[in-house]
Design a protein around this nucleic acid. Structure first.
Lengths: 186, 186
DNA sequence: CAGTTAAAGCAACTCTATTTGCATTAGACT
DNA sequence: AGTCTAATGCAAATAGAGTTGCTTTAACTG
């Protein structure tokens, strides 16, 4: 039986080159033309690769886009660890805002959005994992991963997608501030 | 010169029928197949309309989807007006959650997301207008439209798009509660 | 209740995405 | 090195999207 992944047999050399070229080409083109005007042959040409190779590897464009969107922000990068939850989250949120301020990444996110829900393709699942790490370090703060998602990640992502012009380098701090300081109101 | 809009000349009768049929067909199909596998000819067939008519009216699929996504939640519907901001927002948020719990509307939203940013196609602009009305009625609460967007609308939309299974009928209240009650923390 | 013409239909055509079978290249393993 | 075969390339075939010119229908106007 093969519950264990089929495991790609050839990962280096030419295959890796193609992979990289396709990835790069997709990123460039999605930024230039946007998700809606992107096609597989277009990517293939830019990558100097045969379209067939793309179809055979990924099956279709949505799959390709989703894969790239998911792993763009390195899941292995170091996370802020200042000792204070608020500072950790501020640094982290800043990084996310900055990341998605790049047109490439914003475009990829929108592409990811259009295929989300259909499969297990939540290209932001890594963000949730990271949020969990942060709050786990400071249980005394009484903040839940869900709250971080709802009040920090969600607003950023929402604005990236629908109101990109509204993002600036004060956004992260403002949101963290809301998260911690929203006073009780009558 | 025609800087002034061409202005549609025929709005009733057959035109209206086509419009309705196309709208309905698009909604059905985007739910069935998802944004990515939707095509104009497909819609035309389901609607019993000639593809040409769609191309000529809307130009392309993204435009069509965006238009439908924008006006799905009737902008003229009555808004909650209980006298208390918190209750208004709770009712409103509930309505939004319920709206997007329908697969059709969720799919349309994702479709809207994939074309957002590229044009003035913020299919959620009406939500912002509504938020402004609510906080405008209760300036004493000290809540801004931006905060409503960030902490109420954004989390809902985020979950609709990426984590649809996480929405339930407690979501709206939870978010409003966070918005009002998030205690100050160290 | 005509006349005008916007909007829809139709059909042939173009263009481009996607598929498929086969040949070629080159990773991985011995 | 040599073998096996996964992965790519190539090219022809298919399919379906989108375009265009023209015809027909029927919504508005007077």
């Amino acid at each position: 039986m093969e519950t264990t992944a089929p495991a790609a047999k050839r990962t280096g050399g030419r295959s890796a080159l193609v992979l990289g070229a396709v990835k790069r080409a997709t990123e460039e083109l999605i930024e230039e033309k946007g998700r809606e005007r992107l096609t597989v042959p277009m990517i293939a040409e830019r990558a100097g690769v045969n379209p067939t190779s793309i179809y055979r590897r990924w099956g279709d464009l949505p799959t390709l886009i989703n894969e790239i969107a998911t792993y763009r922000l390195d899941p292995a990068r170091p996370l802020p660890e200042t000792g204070a939850l608020r500072d950790d989250l501020t640094g982290w949120a800043r990084e996310i805002v900055e990341h998605y301020s790049t047109p490439v990444n914003a475009a990829l996110l929108r592409g990811g959005a259009s295929v989300a829900g259909e499969r297990e393709s939540d290209c932001l699942r890594n963000r949730r994992a990271e949020a969990t790490i942060f709050v786990g370090r400071h249980p005394e703060a009484g903040i839940t991963p869900d709250q971080v998602i709802d009040h920090l990640v969600a607003p950023i992502i929402y604005r990236v997608i629908f109101l990109p012009w509204s993002l600036d380098d004060t956004t992260a701090e403002r949101l963290v501030s809301d998260l911690f300081d929203l006073p009780s109101r009558a």
